[in-house]
Amino acid sequence: MPSWITTPVTADLVRGALDLEPTPQGVLPHRLPAWARARNADTQLAVAESQPSGVRLVFRTRATAVELDALPTKRIHIGAPPRPDGRYDLLIDGHPAGRATATGGNTLTIDMNTGTVEPGTGPAATLRFTGLPERDKTVEIWLPHDETTELLALRTDAPVEPASASGRRTWLHHGSSISHGSGAESPTTTWPALAAARGGVELVNLGLGGSALLDPFVARTMRDTPADLISVKIGINLVNADLMRLRAFTPAVHGFLDTIREGHPTAPLLVVSPILCPIHEDTPGPTAYDFSRLGEGRLLFTAVGDPAERAEGKLTLGVVRDELERVVTQRAADDPNLHHLDGRDLYGEADHAELPLPDRLHPDAAAHRRMGERFAAHAFAAEDGPFAEDGGRVTRRI
């Protein structure tokens, strides 16, 4: 048996989280700071921001064996197909070197008809990675992107020290469940994680499932978070929730961008409109569950708005794309580091024909990979990409 060394999980070993909440047993990573969480009253967002998409432990060590004690929280949707256990990805010097899952854990049992949530408790799990090369190396353990994960203990058979980011630029991204990683195979294969790896940047992922709603406290969080490169993917959740009309949408977008610019006045800022989603291209929200295929083990979504309601200012994806392009074009006259990307360039009609959205709303693992590759090719293009090395003056670095 190895002679274990236990290392406390502290902020200098964690990347991608904006807060580590102390718990009786360890720490709980959050992707929104405590002050922002205090301004939120929505359970959906509370769950989403505690799911550590893009959060990873990073350290230098000569260890050949690593153990991580973790307490996951599993979501159980009554009547829906069971969700797979969250995956932990191990990287060594940036290369995939192992995967694991954690069984047990706490539970949230969700009744989709009533919206009620029943919490339950369960045991912690130990993740083990063995047979690692006996040399000095950087080890990363990416936490499950869609499973709240309390970190209890880190053990190794050799000492651990924090790893340097080596001067790499930091990319701060905000978006919906698609950016959060819904449908991705694992935490390193969400489209933002794939794009960050290709671009050679450090990712802070504020993709918040169901919760990219132009909340002012999210804009202020982005304003105050150190970053060199920033992107916001806007639209689908506003349609899903049928949250606002066009009259409110336009000033809300301006306000969100204004707030980000208060902290990052010259950083490259890329506004991305929604990817193709046929149910909402011309039909407003809200989005609802379509239970008609549950007998086949499938849970689908449907749009329940009326296309005629666009005349009353209701939002569709087509309306959102047109308005975002107009807003960015208007602002770019005075903000040369502000850029626009049509989300259909990441996933459009031809992609849908080949890789249809399995639940009519979220891309699958193959589509995530395609979106990550396309975003990286566009944003990090050497000559004219908005995130090219000389594409904008750095305002903050971590």
Score class of each variant (00 low, 15 high):
Trp4Phe: 04
Pro22Glu: 07
Gly26Val: 03
Val27Cys: 04
Leu32Trp: 03
Pro33Trp: 02
Ala38Met: 07
Asp42His: 12
Phe59Lys: 01
Arg60Cys: 10
Asp69Gln: 15
Pro72Asp: 08
Thr73Met: 08
Gly79Ala: 09
Arg83Asp: 14
Asp89Arg: 09
Asp93Met: 03
Gly98Tyr: 01
Gly105Thr: 13
Thr107Cys: 11
Leu108His: 04
Ile110Leu: 04
Thr121Tyr: 08
Thr126Tyr: 04
Arg128Asn: 04
Thr130Val: 06
Lys137Met: 13
Leu143Val: 10
Leu143Ile: 07
Pro144Cys: 10
His145Arg: 05
Thr148Trp: 00
Glu150Cys: 12
Leu152Gln: 03
Pro159Gln: 02
Pro162Asn: 06
Ala163Val: 01
Ser164Gly: 15
Ile178Glu: 12
Gly181Leu: 04
Gly183Ile: 04
Glu185Arg: 15
Pro187Tyr: 14
Pro187Val: 09
Ala195Asn: 05
Ala197Met: 09
Asn205Trp: 00
Gly210Pro: 01
Thr221Arg: 04
Thr221His: 13
Pro226Leu: 13
Asp228Val: 02
Arg245Phe: 11
Leu257Cys: 10
Asp258Leu: 07
Glu262Met: 14
His280Arg: 06
His280Lys: 05
Asp290Ser: 11
Phe291Asn: 04
Thr302Leu: 11
Pro307Asp: 09
Ala311Ile: 14
Lys314Asn: 13
Leu317Asn: 08
Asp322Ala: 15
Ala333Gln: 10
Leu338Tyr: 09
His340Tyr: 15
Tyr347Met: 09
Tyr347Pro: 01
Glu349Phe: 13
Ala350Asn: 10
His352Asp: 15
Asp364Thr: 01
Ala366Pro: 03
Ala367Ser: 14
Arg369Tyr: 08
Phe375Thr: 05
Ala376Pro: 09
Ala379Lys: 03
Ala379Cys: 09
Ala381Trp: 00
Glu383Gly: 11
